[in-house]
Each structure stands twice: as C-alpha cells, then as structure tokens.
Design a protein around this nucleic acid. Structure first.
Lengths: 192, 192
DNA sequence: CTTTAATGTTTATGCTGTAAACATAGCAGC
DNA sequence: GCTGCTATGTTTACAGCATAAACATTAAAG
C-alpha cells in the first residue's frame, strides 16, 4: 500500500519536530491536575505520544525536565507579581504583591511546590535579581529608610506570604481568599 | 544439624516481638539522613531485618507508616515549643517559640516536611488543640486584647515562622542562625 | 494437645527511572 | 542524485518501588 498522504494532515512522522517544547508543555498541563509526586516521566512521554526514552534526547534525566518546568513556573510567578504591583495603588502595592504570591500558589499547587522543591539542587533562586525582587526591595526601602531594616522587612514579608501559601496548600489553614486578605494586611503588619 | 543454641544470644526468631515500634523507630532514624522522597518502605524493612511485606501486618500501606512517623514528629515539635516557651523570659516567649519552630525544622528537615506533607490526607492538623497552640493563643490575646486581633496575630506569626523554615530548607535563604534571630524579632514585629 | 489466629516469608504484578542497542530521517558533500 | 553522518526517535532490558496473594511459622486459647 502506497502512502497517498501527499495531502495535508500533520502525519506525525518519526521525528516530532519540537519534542522538547511539547514535553515542557505537557508537563505543565499535567501539573495542573497531578500532584508533584505522582508526575512521571513516562506519563508525560505518553501524553505527547512518544516513547519514554525519547525524553533523554532532550533532557539528561527527569530532574532536568522538572527544572525546565520550574523555570516556566518562576517566570509565571514573576509576571503575576509584576501585574499585581502595577494594578494596585502605590500604598497597597506591597501587600497586593504578597497576596498575589499566595493566590498564585493556590492556583498552581504542584508547580509552586516544584519551583521551591526543585531549584534547590539547580542552584537557582526564586528571588534572585529579577524585577519582582528589585521592586520589593524598593518598597521596603521606602518604608524603613535604612538598608538593614529594608532587608529585614523583605525577609519577613517573603517568609509571611510563603508560609501562608504553604500552610494553605498543606491543608493546615483553609485556602480562603478572605483569610489571605486578613493575614496580609498592611494596616497591622510592618508599620514603622 | 541440630540447633544447639539453647544458650543465650537473641536468636531473632521468626516473630519479631514488637515490629511495629521497630519500624517506626527505624523510619525516624532513616529520616535523619534520607530525604523524604527517597525513603522507601522496603529500605525500612531491610533496616529492621524483615521482609518488605511484613510491614503490611502492622500498617495498611506506606502512607499509614508515614503517618505514624509524622505523629512522632508532631509530638517532638510540640515538646520543643513548650521547652522554648518555658525557658524564655515572658516578654520574649512568643518570639522564642517561633525561633524554636524554625530551628527544629532545620534540625529535622525530612521529618518536618513529612509532618506537613502528610497530615493533610490524614486530616490531622499540627496546630489543633494541643498545649503549644493554646499557649500561643494566650500570648496573642495578651498583646492585642481583642479576639479577632489575637487570631490574626497567631496566623501571621505561624505563617512567618513556617515560611522562614521552608525557605531555608529549600535553600532559598541561608540556614543561618543569626538570620533566624533577625527575622523573628519581637522589636520589629507585631507591635501594637 | 490440638486448633486457630497473629505474624512472619516467598512470589508475582505493574509501575517507575534509565542504560544500551537499534531504526529512521533530514542534511552535507561528493 | 547518491552516500554517509548525525540528530532524534524506538525497542528492549534492568533494578527498585508499592503491594497483592499464597504459604509458613509460632504463640496462645480451648
């Protein structure tokens, strides 16, 4: 039988075209519904329609694939932070950024966990020299005045929102939107 | 060949005696050196010197064994909290308790992770009606006066210390003892 | 003393990550 | 236009995992 498909139809031939991107995309989609620990390299490969070992042509191992997913997650988080800061009133921007942090975590639980569980061994750091970090440092500086105080304020704020996100993700606190607003409250926190 | 061991020597016969306790103990010891994700039921069984499936005579599945380990972890944490509160000066007790929380997490990373990752599905809650929680509520009440404020203060404090612990465990912040003292500082936090 | 229930072991199944050998296809140079 | 090289797939294989099922041992109860 001669293959007459000189016509249209993406025949999905032996070579995929852009398998690497497809794997990352499939991985991110899987993380929307699958807990991080249940995410398997084989399942991602299956979703893309490719053999499990094909993954190794694009990533040295599973951890490397996860790192690629984490990098996407970090980018998404940073974007969310910027948006929240941009739309809030200046006086509220600091708190608004913190609430956005927690809400993003609740909206993407597995990816959030991956970001922080993964970039440890990669040596990557979420709050490195990206825009979000700079912006927060500026806010902190504006509130406290001195350098050391600003540094401490940033760490306290980051710890607060990160802890709140984690406790809600882990079911220790109800993942309640009103609770987020009450806990991350500029009136009662970090007043000079 | 006749077995002449009518003598001493704990022959470690067919039945173990108290396998359940031995498994929990071995699990806790393994968590001191093994990351949570690398902890395997089979390895724990091997450490105890028993077949893997023997575990199922005492726990319905791996998760149940982990829950038993988590329960031990919760108890240890609560004890640490009580000790910290008892030894500190009254004015410093609140902050001292928080610092003890973070230090315990850093001293027992895998167990700390297990406690919060596990008691989700068990429906268990770390800050339930135990002594530590009551004590903290009293402190909070003393600072703020009103009920709602005390509740908020507790949540903020818990989020702060939990977040700091997590960020240090995940390598986002250096696990530095001085840093803990600087971030959890009664002078700059939660003043009325 | 015999039966029974508790608590072990062996064996087997299907999942996982990954190494090794093999297959296909697109591109380079003749 | 044919020939090979290299990139990128597939198949197969292996060890480790959780766990189910069948079998073995032994402590305790009648």
């Amino acid at each position: 039988m001669v293959t007459v498909s000189t016509s249209t139809a993406p025949v999905r031939s032996y070579h995929h075209g852009d398998l690497r991107s497809a794997l990352v995309e499939a991985g991110l989609k899987a993380l929307e519904t699958t807990p991080l620990n249940d995410l398997s390299l084989r399942q991602i490969a299956r979703d893309v329609g490719v053999s499990a070992t094909a993954v190794y042509r694009h990533f040295p191992d599973k951890a490397a694939l996860l790192s690629a997913l984490a990098a996407e997650g970090i980018a998404q988080m940073a974007q969310q932070q910027r948006d929240a800061a941009a739309t809030a009133a200046p006086a509220q921007a600091f708190a608004a950024t913190g609430r956005a942090y927690v809400r993003w975590a609740l909206a993407h639980p597995a990816l959030f966990r991956l970001v922080f569980g993964q970039c440890q061994e990669v040596g990557q750091t979420v709050f490195g020299d990206n825009d979000a970090a700079r912006m927060l440092r500026d806010y902190a500086q504006g509130i406290t005045g001195d350098e050391a105080g600003a540094q401490r304020l940033m760490l306290q704020a980051w710890s607060l929102v990160h802890g709140l996100a984690m406790l809600m993700l882990d079911g220790q606190l109800p993942a309640d939107d009103g609770l987020i607003d009450r806990v991350i409250d500029a009136e009662t926190l970090f007043r000079t």
